[in-house]
Amino acid sequence: MSTTRLLLLGVVRIFQPAYGYQLRRELMTWKVESWANINPGSIYTGLRTLAKHGYLQEIEQDGANRPGRTSYKLTADGETEYFSLLRGMLWTVDGFHPDKMQATLSFLWSLRRDEVIAAMEARISQLESQAKSGPFAERQILEDPGTPSHVVEMLRITTARDDGELRWTREFLDRIRDGAYSFAGEPTDWKPYPGMVTHWGEIPDAPEAAEEP
């Protein structure tokens, strides 16, 4: 749920005000259905829920009450929630939910470089600590007569993921220390091509509801 909330708040923040169908279309290009377990229909539901809780403002056009014809922008509470979620996922390693870091990477540019560097250093410390404790957790499983022996492989696959993330985090930290990418307060290193701007300026029709047989 927290990953979904960050993705919805973050994409609205980029394009606001934007129509529900535009936001849905954009998130589908991010393949969120495969790594964040978000299906197209749940995007509309999530937007309405965030509006209900005061994180988004709904702007309806011509009295239309359809998801594709309602545009959204962040409220002050939504802005606060966005940064709270972003920082929470950035500073905390959660090996059982890799989608959290995947979503965080989509919006790291909204933080300053020094904070991202500090957070990466903190993540390395957490991952190194987990690596040190891993062999002892494995020994406990193997020595416990009440635990099936195959359970140790569940620990090992998690450890393997953490090892891979540790390698990537060290490399990523080196890249951003060397000046890679752009962060808040810095000149942008990427601009959308004109066709993309035009694409977003168009107001699409929401998809037709399927007729019942």
Rank of each mutant, 00 (worst) to 15 (best):
G164K: 06
P148K: 15
A206I: 04
E153A: 13
A206M: 03
A180F: 06
A160R: 14
G185P: 04
E153S: 13
G185N: 04
R175F: 01
R170W: 04
A160H: 13
R175T: 05
P207I: 00
T188M: 11
P207W: 00
G179D: 05
E186A: 02
E186S: 09
D163C: 05
V151P: 15
W200K: 01
H199N: 03
P145H: 09
I157A: 00
W200Q: 03
L173G: 08
G164N: 05
E165A: 10
E153D: 15
R170S: 05
I203Q: 05
E165R: 15
T147W: 05
V197M: 08
P145Q: 08
I157Q: 11
E143W: 06
I176H: 03
A160C: 07
A206K: 02
R167G: 01
T198I: 08
V152T: 15
E208Y: 08
W168T: 08
G179T: 07
P194E: 04
D205M: 01
A206Y: 01
E208S: 09
T147P: 13
M154V: 14
G164A: 04
Y181A: 10
V152D: 13
H150W: 13
P194R: 03
S149V: 11
M154R: 14
G201A: 08
T198V: 09
S182I: 09
S149Q: 10
D144V: 11
G185S: 01
R161W: 15
T198F: 04
V152Q: 14
E171Y: 03
I176Y: 03
P187G: 06
M154T: 15
A160I: 11
Y181S: 09
T169P: 07
R161E: 07
H150P: 15
R156C: 09
I203G: 01
H150I: 15
P187M: 05
M196W: 11
L142G: 12
W190K: 06
D189G: 06
G195I: 10
I203P: 03
E153V: 14
T147M: 13
W200R: 00
S149T: 12
P192C: 09
T198N: 04
R167H: 02
I176M: 02
L155G: 14
M196S: 11
A160V: 12
T188W: 12
V197K: 07
W168S: 06
S149C: 05
P148R: 14
A206F: 00
D205A: 01
Y193L: 06
W168Y: 08
T159C: 12
T169L: 08
P192S: 09
L142D: 14
H199T: 03
P194I: 05
K191A: 14
T158H: 15
F183E: 01
P204I: 00
I203N: 02
V151E: 14
D144M: 09
D162C: 12
T198G: 02
T147N: 12
Y181C: 10
T159N: 14
A160F: 13
H150M: 15
E165K: 12
D174S: 08
E208N: 10
G146H: 13
G146D: 11
A206S: 02
R161V: 09
P145M: 07
Y193M: 03
W168H: 08
F183A: 00
G185M: 02
F183N: 01
T169A: 08
R177G: 07
W190Y: 11
F183G: 02
P207Q: 00
T188C: 07
T188I: 10
D178R: 07
Y193K: 00
P204Q: 01
